[in-house]
Design a protein around this nucleic acid. Sequence first.
DNA 1: TCTCTATTGAGATCTAATTTCAATTTTGAT
DNA 2: ATCAAAATTGAAATTAGATCTCAATAGAGA
Lengths: 149, 149
Amino acid sequence: MIDISEILENFRAFIKSKGLKYTPEREEILIEILKYKDHFDVDELHMELKKKGSKISKASIYRTLPLLIEAGYIQEVYKQEGRAYYEVVINKLPHLHFICIKCKKVEEIIDPKLIELIQEHAKKKEFHLLSYHLEIFGTCLECRKGGMV
Amino acid sequence: MIDISEILENFRAFIKSKGLKYTPEREEILIEILKYKDHFDVDELHMELKKKGSKISKASIYRTLPLLIEAGYIQEVYKQEGRAYYEVVINKLPHLHFICIKCKKVEEIIDPKLIELIQEHAKKKEFHLLSYHLEIFGTCLECRKGGMV
DNA sequence: TCTCTATTGAGATCTAATTTCAATTTTGAT
DNA sequence: ATCAAAATTGAAATTAGATCTCAATAGAGA
Ligand SMILES: [Mn+2]
Ligand SMILES: [Mn+2]
Ligand SMILES: [Zn+2]
Ligand SMILES: [Zn+2]
């Protein structure tokens, strides 16, 4: 479970440490994002905020996401059809994604051995690792079997 | 080494098998692409063709790439700054990419153990694997050390 | 309260990728 | 070789996610 008030305080400190201003918009976006258990995109987030009566613009969302990434709360996980998808990574192990190109279902696979291999390579190459994109595209069993597209 | 005439014959058969027409444009694009040893994007390819006097339009390139992917000659390897990058995968082992976000250098890492792990997961999940995106973003040693951006 | 500066929303802009459409080309049949 | 049907082409229009511009507003320290 995630302790929201602790994260908000953390975020406030992060924002101030960068000489930026802690605005209601930034906080509201963070609070909303923390509710996501799965992947989300900007449109989805914006609609969700609107549904709750918020007037936050997409521009502000686009401006806030990089801050949340830098603060380490979220990551961009993959792009599909020209659209970027994000996920909360607090208390979440690195993992790879099996993405069905038919039904768009995304399955997460956690494999510490795999992540370890990657980190070994990074270490060997003296590469400072910032983020992963481990996506496997294909078709899931259900979609191969039949109908349901 | 790649046997071009064999591939062209192969491509012709592929195109015909789909009830499509084998045009000089499609062949020219394939021939040009087969020359690439590294990653390329549409703009680069288009300029390269133009430089050689070709009048092939970007639209035709955009229309041909999916065919070449389907035929198994190339793959989309990653997207950066809204642009897709491709590579020839004939006689090429699956591999991951370390991408430096500063100098944009891309390093390929071949690790059969890693690929095997992924294939095991796919098998376990009964997922029919079509393509990988294994990209690791970060900074290379040179860029961390200093100047050269 | 005051002042400096960052931030906001709305809309303009950017640009990779896709679509449209009339002219042209391929291809198989005659 | 000629023909007709259907696919393909290039050019330009369009789409859409992401970024940028800018005037109005709000945060934060003095
Ligand atoms: Mn995930
Ligand atoms: Mn590669
Ligand atoms: Zn599926
Ligand atoms: Zn670098």
